[in-house]
Amino acid sequence: MAIGPDMRSYRGASAAAGAGVLDEGLRAYMLRVYNWMASGLFLTAIVSLAISQTSLIDIFYPLVTTASGAVVRQPGILAYVTMFAPIGFVMIMSFGVNKLSTTQAQGLFWAFCALMGASLTNIFLIYTGTSILATFFVTAGTFAAMSVYGYTTKANLAKFGSFLIMGVIGLLIAMVVNMFLHSSALQFAISAIGVLIFTGLAAYDTQRIKADYVQYGYRFGADVASKRSVYDALQLYLTFINLFMFLLQFMGNRRS
């Protein structure tokens, strides 16, 4: 017969309460990350459509008469700027993670997404709008399924992380090489491997974000959580965009 309160029940209740608070915080944090990512994708789509469907297209891709007399659109200086500027933004956000304020990180995220929209304008010149929309929905479905898998699976995907990142580096090297070779077979292989790698990264990134919050989330203040959610959203955003672009090379119907 126990005399006095059973401290084990108190400890059990305390642990359960702590777990409940952590789960609630994790769900709120992940929702914030996905909201940032979805908002960024929406901004990218709006900017890309606004340029491609209005006279702004003439600024980015002016009409040029070729030597054969054909009139085609070719990228202008502004188009090249928007193609390479996002790389600079990613580098600034990556190296300035500890120096940037939350407001600055958020502003850079919006600017980056807008620039990505401008840089993706050329897909509307290459592919039909219907195939672009269909590819977007396939990408969204694939990303959502893999993200749910990454969030719920008990398997440790961290061991695949290094392999996937090495795969991204290999893809970049292969893409640079193919700029000189112009090999259709190599391009097909790059596209196929790219789809596989970024499909895997959708699950891996989701699990990594969840694991980081479970490990360190209790230390997050409101400001740290706000800034960190922007960086995590950027990772998912980049994975989504790359998966979309590689799938588009398979599913996109080229304009005649």
Rank of each mutant, 00 (worst) to 15 (best):
D6W: 06
S14I: 13
A16E: 05
G18D: 00
D23V: 02
G25P: 06
L26M: 02
R27V: 12
M30G: 04
L31F: 09
N35G: 15
N35D: 14
L43M: 07
A45M: 08
V47F: 00
S48A: 04
L49K: 12
A50F: 02
A50I: 07
A50S: 06
S52W: 05
Q53L: 14
I57G: 01
D58F: 09
F60W: 04
A70E: 15
V71A: 10
V71E: 14
Q74V: 14
L78I: 12
V81G: 08
M83L: 15
I87F: 13
G96E: 10
G96W: 11
V97N: 11
L100I: 13
T103L: 14
G117N: 06
I123Y: 04
G129P: 07
F136Y: 09
V138Q: 05
A140W: 01
A140L: 07
G141L: 05
A144M: 13
Y149I: 09
T153E: 10
T153Y: 08
F163A: 15
I165V: 15
V168D: 09
G170A: 06
G170K: 00
S183Q: 04
G200P: 05
A202S: 05
R208C: 13
I209F: 02
K210Y: 03
Y216I: 10
G221A: 03
V230I: 04
L234I: 09
Y237F: 08
F246G: 00
L247M: 02
L247H: 01
L247E: 02
L248T: 07
L248D: 05
